[in-house]
Design a protein around this nucleic acid. Structure first.
Lengths: 218, 218
DNA sequence: ACTCATTTATGACCTTTGGTTATTTATTAC
DNA sequence: GTAATAAATAACCAAAGGTCATAAATGAGT
């Protein structure tokens, strides 16, 4: 059915239009301050219509987060397609995560928002959250794969369980993300200035420590 | 003035009473779901009274966070009083952080909540947030000191700037915290089960990697 | 013990905002 | 062209954070 297809497409377009409006408002007002009314106005729709496409405000926010996660996923995939030593893959995944953070502050905020939400809710009955979880799983899988490759080619110590190591590195990378995000913190900012450093060099050093921590000692 | 002193004390008691009531409600309902009405009821006070002691709901929440940070601060202080090699101090700080997380889930939640809030607000004009920042600075100072000691006694590589290294380790530890907190995530939980591991061993491995990453190579 | 000034507490009230729904408008199939 | 279905609207509701006029309690001075 051609008409049915077109409908599907138009529905999809409305969805992305709403998401895009939400992103604009969030950029302007911040995550917690953005209201459904303002998003509706920005999207040139009525508020009721928003709820035709997103069951809750949270579902809309999760859709934004999903979009960000997908971008990150693309970067990771690109890295994994290179033919390199495992340790180099890990390093590159770290680098691409860093560059993702710096060039997508809004999606970074979305990720942090997401984290703070999911501990309060049971995600079983939350479809959009499940979708985010799925991409998260995917990202973790890339990292695990890189570690496994490194263990096989001898560039990463095989004393540890690859999956576990992946989770752990992933977790600490997100810690860096958080740090980057709250760089507005005055004392942190000031300290970096005093040291004539910036956040990027710090995160790069973080990656160095991780690499040194997991590479085969010789 | 004795009466004035007593008043001060009673005011303080009211404050802690409200905080304690809030903690109870938060335990019952979760951070985002707890309402000022319910906290007031739990504290056997009217809602208006709550606002006599805390200017905003957020100020109350920050007070809870501060309480948690102080507990953590006590632990860190205790570690730093031991006479040990720098690298051991760092390890012990990590351990005590881990045990703090596992034994204080509510304060951990508070910390995560706090993190998600402060990026949205300018904390200059936010006194309770400033107090939390101050303790955070203190915690970071302990870690910095431990690293400096380690660099002096030769147990930690002196290739890096101690302050910067401290921030970075602190950041990744908080990443672990976040990971621990959302352990409800089904797939993570399941993965750990499959590997016959638990969150504690993972965090312990995380500490091992960090230690290996910063110790003097030989 | 009484009075009055000041502090502390109350609960009715306001406002914002996420979410709902009866109604209207547009679209599609016949 | 018309009936049926889908999409959009705007008025509305309810929950929750926050305020304020009023009342109760407290304390100092006589």
């Amino acid at each position: 059915m051609s008409t049915e297809d077109r409908k599907k497409r138009e529905q999809q377009r409305r969805r992305t239009q709403i998401i895009s409006a939400a992103e604009t408002v969030i950029e302007r007002k911040g995550f917690q301050q953005a209201t459904m009314d303002e998003i509706a106005e920005e999207a040139e729709l009525s508020k009721g219509t928003l709820y035709l496409y997103f069951s809750h405000k949270e579902a809309l926010y999760l859709a934004i987060n999903k979009k960000g996660l997908q971008k990150l996923n693309d970067r990771f995939l690109h890295v994994m397609q290179q033919d390199q030593q495992g340790i180099e893959l890990v390093k590159d995944l770290g680098d691409s995560f860093l560059s993702f953070i710096t060039s997508n502050p809004n999606y970074t905020k979305a990720l942090i928002y997401y984290e703070s939400v999911i501990n309060e809710e049971k995600l079983e009955e939350n479809e959009p959250a499940q979708e985010c979880e799925e991409i998260g799983r995917q990202l973790l899988m890339y990292l695990t794969r890189a570690i496994q490759i490194g263990m096989q080619d001898g560039s990463i110590t095989n004393q540890m369980e690859p999956k576990l190591l992946a989770v752990q590195i992933w977790g600490s990378m997100r810690g860096m993300m958080q740090l980057y995000q709250v760089r507005s913190q005055h004392h942190l900012q000031k300290m970096l200035q005093d040291l004539e450093m910036n956040m990027e060099t710090m995160i790069r050093q973080f990656l160095d420590v991780q690499i040194k921590g997991i590479q085969t000692s010789n």
